[in-house]
């Protein structure tokens, strides 16, 4: 199981245009829809919003990781987006978020997928990892940062 089975350059958007939480979630889900990773966009949006209601996934340190577990997801995937200006995501530390990881997994997932996602989440705690994502110039660089986790 490699990182590039989850994410590729098509799933990366370097300049998110959204300015608020709801639209950035939709913008990220749009990426998944364009790449045919999900079958029902509305359902996925609904699930993502429900998850946010239980508690924000804006985990602070400029990172937000909205995630969805749903039968409308074909395969586990991660979309990455970056916002230059930062978006008020209702984060735990009340600061804007710059790095967005949308994680989608099907209702039934293999443990190894989940373990890799867990590893990605663990890396987000590290300053170096976040900084290299913030500084990455293009999709290719983002991929190489992610592949090295």
């Amino acid at each position: 199981m490699e990182v590039n089975e989850f994410i590729n350059q098509n799933l990366i958007k370097m300049n998110l245009t959204s300015e608020d939480k709801d639209s950035v979630i939709k913008e990220m889900i749009e990426i998944m829809a364009e790449n045919e990773i999900i079958t029902d966009k509305e359902e996925v949006i609904k699930k993502a919003m429900e998850r946010e209601e239980k508690g924000t996934t804006g985990v602070g340190k400029g990172v937000a990781i909205p995630h969805v577990k749903s039968s409308a997801v074909k395969r586990p995937a991660v979309a990455f987006g970056r916002s230059e200006k930062g978006i008020d995501y209702g984060s735990m530390d009340e600061k804007p978020s710059y790095l967005f990881f949308l994680i989608t997994v099907p209702e039934e997932s293999h443990d190894e997928h989940l373990k890799l996602l867990a590893k990605l989440s663990r890396n987000l705690i590290h300053d170096d990892f976040r900084n290299s994502l913030l500084e990455a110039k293009d999709e290719e660089e983002v991929m190489s940062v992610l592949e090295n986790i």
Partner: peptide, 17 residues
Amino acid sequence: CPTGIAHTYMASESLEE
């Protein structure tokens, strides 16, 4: 955490660090 995909592990990593 409820979904058990991300926060569980971030919290774990953060505590270990």
